[in-house]
Design a protein around this nucleic acid. Sequence first.
DNA 1: GATCTAAACGGACTACGGTCCGGATAATAT
DNA 2: ATATTATCCGGACCGTAGTCCGTTTAGATC
Lengths: 205, 205
Amino acid sequence: MWDVSFIPLRPGSLSGPVTERSDAARNRERLLGAARELIDECGADGLTMDRLAERAGVGKGTVFRRFGSRAGLMMTLLSDAEAEFQARFMFGPPPLGPGAPGLERLIAFGSARIAYVLEYGELARAADESAYNRFDVPAAVLWHRHIELLLREEGMDADPRLMAMALSATLDPERLLHAVRVHGIEPERLAESWRELVTRVVRGA
Amino acid sequence: MWDVSFIPLRPGSLSGPVTERSDAARNRERLLGAARELIDECGADGLTMDRLAERAGVGKGTVFRRFGSRAGLMMTLLSDAEAEFQARFMFGPPPLGPGAPGLERLIAFGSARIAYVLEYGELARAADESAYNRFDVPAAVLWHRHIELLLREEGMDADPRLMAMALSATLDPERLLHAVRVHGIEPERLAESWRELVTRVVRGA
DNA sequence: GATCTAAACGGACTACGGTCCGGATAATAT
DNA sequence: ATATTATCCGGACCGTAGTCCGTTTAGATC
């Protein structure tokens, strides 16, 4: 269902039948194209499922069969950027990727995440609007685990899982966007504050 | 509009005309009663504005004129508990209220807030479902300022406002409820983790 | 008590996300 | 080519939050 995961799923890799009917594939491409157009024109919040269906020239049912929900559509639209981000912090060069000390990687992770949210913020927020299990989406679980891993690496003695949860909360797209857009806080100050936060949390260990 | 604030507003104290028409007052009471009934019967998520209007025997427009939105209704329903909570951490006995060191008050604040969320969780979540300005509601601003104040009192040298924002994020009702209800984490562990977190943040100053 | 007016009322209406199912069609077997 | 079938398609339909505006009424004035 969710096209955002550790490594992006191509149709047929895991879910469902190995082949996709040609009309289905054609409609998926049409829908993704139309969605990008609409977001360019009206912003992510201006994209409604009805307008998307109309623009793509398909029925509304088709939209939902393809993406499951509005949030699912947004996740699909994010999946490329998301996969790239994941690759950077898991396999890329230090300090974000492996090779640097845990604390430095944590600091870099926060900065990168803040930049990511500021770039894809509207989409990320729309993708999070799912009622429940917003925190159990594969990508969110992966960030959480990553933070937890780095905390353990730094010898965190308090419950690393809950500490990672607390730190994750700080990077919530909705909060970050709100701080920047409503309160006019500069992104660099957010990154700086994150640095202070994780440094204290780790040092206190 | 919002009935949740520092000290609860009684009709006529600030907003609008000093007196409320008798039919308006009668309908407000009817609506609040019906809302509590419905929540008892169906849970907060089972309360819809249509059913509420029907149960209270008023038109739907009346519901929205009175409370502005579903979230506004939920806030009104929470306002008593909220006012009591506010009174406790601002004027009550230590360690939650004034008289204890900042760090102890911070720790107590987290515990109290966690208990509060677990008790009124559904309502709190429903009250937060407002699209925007969820973080600028008077009650949220007050918690934020309170945390910021305590951080300053402890000599926080990094930006106290942003640190308070980060700590607030940790206490978000949706996250706390999710941790408890979905992942089965015991509330005591949440409080313990909060204690670790704020201790490190303050000590690192 | 009659009059007046600002406030409140009610419910039809819109926009939206999401569901459902009878009909169409692409792939496959014959 | 034809038949079969699993999959897909479309758009009518539903429940919900929120808006609008013509009508009613409480309460003040005379």
